[in-house]
């Protein structure tokens, strides 16, 4: 008696009449030179899908087909039905199999929605712990993989377990302070754990330190501004934050109107300047705001020059 998770062996299918694949049509585009193995596998798979046999050998066939054609959505759907029918008490093994497929197909998104389906429909006894190793491994290998981050956030919300997230993003930000996904995950975490004022103040200090490390980093600036917008809306961005941003544009005099790039000094961060410009604009310090936009257009961010000039016209209106 062979099992769901044994190796695929053609002999187990000797009694099956395959449903041969379609090849060699007249006026056909993109004709693929299929291998004999593919023809055989697909012929079997089509026959099994048609009869909807929910057996261990059908499950072994799906594993083989998915290894050859991971984008074959019907094969995943079929496998899921087989698991529900005959293997739902063996989720450990199913996840083990899935982890292996995942490691072999890092860019495929099907693996994550399949995982989600298993967890959602069959995983009453599971915890986030079971998902951590594969997610950590995948993000260690590709630290900005959008599908993995999305799945991670879904899983954290599903299991309502936020205990691993902060130390995890700490590690990733330490490794690459420019990792936007990690900063984004940090904000996702903060929004979901309802932090107290002290925690937010500590976050602000943490983020300022990261900005001081590399001031020209959009991700840490967005995070800092997000902290204020989300957790300190009443205080606005005033006072200490203006001073903090001002520290990166020391040499620049925003009371003077610049006329050429050459006359302007070096600064450390265009994001600091842009932040100051938008704050001055909302505070009604229009001349300083205009000067700041002018400097961005002339020297600090010339590729968006026409946009900065447009900002100036909105202040004049």
């Amino acid at each position: 008696m062979t099992d769901c998770y044994d190796e695929f062996n053609l002999e187990d299918y000797a009694d099956v009449e395959p449903l041969p694949i379609v090849t060699g049509l007249k006026d056909e585009l993109c004709q693929i030179m299929y291998s004999e193995e593919y023809k055989q596998l697909m012929g079997l798979m089509r026959a099994f899908l048609s009869s909807n046999e929910l057996t261990p050998r059908a499950m072994r066939l799906t594993a083989r087909v998915i290894a050859v054609a991971p984008a074959f959505y019907t094969a995943w759907n079929y496998r899921f039905n087989i698991v529900v029918a005959i293997a739902k008490d063996r989720l450990d093994q199913e996840f083990q199999w899935l982890d292996e497929v995942t490691l072999n197909n890092p860019k495929n998104y099907q693996i994550w929605s399949y995982r989600q389906a298993l967890v959602e429909n069959l995983g009453q006894d599971l915890t986030l712990r079971g998902d951590l190793p594969i997610m950590d491994m995948m993000l260690d290998d590709d630290t900005k993989n959008y599908h993995v981050w999305s799945y991670r956030k879904w899983a954290v919300l599903h299991f309502k377990d936020f205990t691993h997230e902060l130390s995890f993003v700490d590690k990733l930000i330490d490794r690459d302070v420019y990792n936007n996904s990690a900063w984004n995950h940090r904000m996702f975490y903060m929004k979901n754990v309802s932090p107290d004022d002290r925690t937010i103040d500590e976050e602000i200090t943490y983020t300022k330190n990261k900005i001081e490390l590399v001031p020209q980093n959009i991700s840490s600036w967005n995070y800092l501004r997000g902290l204020y917008d989300h957790f300190k809306p009443e205080t606005g961005h005033k006072g200490e934050l203006l001073k903090f941003a001002g520290g990166f544009i020391d040499a620049l005099d925003l009371n003077a109107t610049a006329d050429s790039a050459e006359s302007l000094p070096e600064i450390e961060s265009s994001y600091a300047l842009e932040f100051l410009a938008s704050e001055y604009a909302t505070e009604g310090q229009l001349q300083r705001a205009k000067n700041a936009y002018q400097c961005l257009a002339l020297k600090y961010d010339p590729i968006r020059g026409s946009f900065w000039n447009y900002k100036i016209t909105t202040l004049e209106a």
């Binding site: 420019y178 590399v214 300047l273 020297k299 961010d301 010339p302 590729i303």
Partner: peptide
Amino acid sequence: GCEFLQEGKNENYDALDHGGFQGREN
């Protein structure tokens, strides 16, 4: 401009990609 300050620091930055577009920050 200031974007060039990332050169040699941000492992996902290449000044020669000037004018191209990215799908996400950094």
